[in-house]
Simulated scan of single mutants.
Amino acid sequence: MAASNINRVILTGNLTFDPELRSLPSGTSVCKLRVAVNTRRKNNATNEWEDKPNYFDVTVWGAQGENAARYLSKGRPVAIDGRLEWSEWQDKDTGKNRSKVEIVADTVQFLGGRDDNAGGGGGFTPRADVPTNTSDFGPPAATPQPVSTPVSTPADDDIPF
């Protein structure tokens, strides 16, 4: 039996524009999102940590896409759980082959409060994947040595059964 492959993406970030909802001729709804996710990297020239944004195209199908379009707006924080999908096509204008990788969302979780247009509200604060305070990476504190205690065996008359 062949091993199964895993294609899973989980990310949190903020929407870079309002959701775009459209319907296919079949009546199926499809919503397009673009999510910005910051990655923290150390600049070797300045020795400072800097945020570098990464942008991801997300497709949400059906009723979930309709809800995303109804309740989300630019700047809102979201959590996306989905899979990567690669597509290829030929550019109509230039005739060149084009391709892209996008995220097809299985679930979209709305983060923050309903009225948080700037994002980051409602108890959710986007965080980078590398902490700013690197003192957290110091040597570990000394761990206490385990104390051995003698094990006593009960006498036959101490057994409760």
Rank of each mutant, 00 (worst) to 15 (best):
K42T: 09
G82I: 00
D156N: 11
G120I: 10
N47Y: 01
T107F: 12
K100R: 15
V37I: 03
P53T: 05
V78N: 07
S87G: 01
L33Q: 06
A155C: 03
V30R: 13
R22A: 08
G112M: 09
S23A: 14
G75F: 03
S152T: 15
D156S: 05
K100V: 13
G119Y: 01
P126N: 08
L11A: 11
N133A: 01
G119P: 08
S87P: 00
V130I: 00
Q109F: 07
W89V: 01
D51V: 00
E48Y: 08
V58W: 10
Q64E: 15
L72H: 08
A118T: 12
F17R: 15
A142S: 07
L33A: 01
K32Q: 14
T12L: 14
T12P: 07
F17G: 15
D156K: 00
V35P: 04
V78D: 08
F56Y: 02
A68Q: 02
V147Y: 09
P131E: 10
K92P: 07
D18H: 03
P146T: 10
G120R: 03
D106R: 11
S26A: 14
N133R: 11
E88K: 06
L84P: 02
T28Q: 15
T134A: 09
D81P: 05
G65C: 06
D81M: 10
P139C: 00
S4D: 14
M1H: 09
R98C: 01
G75I: 06
S26Q: 15
A2P: 13
G123M: 02
N97C: 00
L84Q: 08
T12N: 09
R40C: 04
D136Y: 14
G62K: 11
L84M: 05
S73F: 10
I159Y: 04
T107L: 08
F137R: 02
E102T: 12
R76L: 02
G120V: 01
R83H: 10
P146Y: 08
L33T: 09
A68W: 04
N67D: 03
T94A: 04
V101T: 13
T46R: 06
A142P: 06
V58L: 10
T149I: 06
N5V: 13
L72F: 00
N133D: 15
P77R: 05
P126G: 03
N44R: 14
L21D: 05
S152I: 11
D18G: 02
L11R: 06
K32D: 15
R8V: 07
W89N: 07
I6K: 13
G13T: 07
D157N: 04
